[in-house]
């Protein structure tokens, strides 16, 4: 379930300190989200373009972009016709130029953010990212939630697969019928119940081993010299952006 294909990347991305990744990824997404000028967005695309160099297999990255852009396609169908402002005719339809500009903006922003966060965050093991969140002093409950998420989503996935196989063994073939809807309803209900029960069992087992709400981590990150250089480059990049912003 949790895709690890991007983990097989070249060293630079993999070895970057997860804390640095989270902070720069967050800052970057925030800046891109609020930026309103195309020119600045072009400056901002330099970071993902630079990071992509270190990715050996770009195909996996593109796969991740498909769902995002399918969603954006709907915006492209709706916004140009509904956006207020001056309209130009397009065959028998009326298009808003403002709307098209707006669509371009959203598409560019969404792709930049997804590409950059994917490059930064998917290139570290999930547990390292959670560990880093812990170090960044995020609320413990939130970190634990992320941790259980990563641990139990694959378990739920396996459970679903098993139920589906047993349905198949009893000659179940999905059709457009009440029987099929009922069966799927039962399946979902059972998965929720199973996960609830499992959560209870896991919690008891954890309590039995003296868990009291804190995960103590065994390994700690070591801030490497390379990280100094990387953070310097990132800082310069963001500072330049703010100076350009201030100058205009």
């Amino acid at each position: 379930m949790i895709d690890t294909k991007l983990l097989e990347s070249r060293n630079f991305l993999k070895e970057m300190d997860p804390r640095l990744k989270i902070i720069s990824g967050f800052l970057y997404s925030f800046i891109v989200a609020v930026e309103k000028k195309f020119l600045f967005l072009i400056y901002l695309s330099a970071l993902p373009l630079f990071l992509i160099i270190f990715l050996p297999d770009i195909k996996n990255l593109f796969k991740k972009l498909i769902p995002v852009n399918v969603f954006l396609l709907f915006l492209w169908i709706l916004i140009p016709f509904t956006y207020p402002g001056e309209k130009t005719s397009f065959f028998f339809l009326k298009l808003s130029e403002e709307g098209i500009r707006y669509c371009w903006m959203i598409t560019l922003k969404a792709n930049l953010i997804v590409i950059t966060t994917t490059l930064l965050l998917s290139t570290s093991p999930f547990l390292h990212i959670i560990h880093a969140l812990h170090h960044l002093k995020l609320p413990e409950k939130l970190v634990n939630l992320f941790y259980f998420f990563s641990r139990y989503i694959p378990v739920l996935n396996r459970e679903t697969t098993r139920l589906r196989i047993s349905m198949k063994a009893r000659s179940f073939i999905p059709k457009t019928s009440i029987h099929t809807y009922k069966t799927y309803g039962n399946l979902v209900g059972m998965i929720i119940l199973n996960s609830y029960n499992r959560a209870g069992k896991v919690y008891t087992a954890m309590k039995a081993r003296s868990f009291s709400g804190t995960f103590w981590t065994k390994n700690h990150f070591i801030w490497k010299r390379k990280d100094n250089i990387t953070s310097l480059i990132f800082t310069l990049y963001f500072v330049t952006y703010f100076i350009l912003k201030w100058l205009q």
């Binding site: 098993r162 139920l163 196989i165 047993s166 039962n186 399946l187 209900g189 059972m190 199973n194």
Partner: peptide
């Protein structure tokens, strides 16, 4: 595992 097999109300 019978739990794999039983899922109806």
């Amino acid at each position: 595992d019978s739990d794999d097999q039983l899922f109806s109300p």
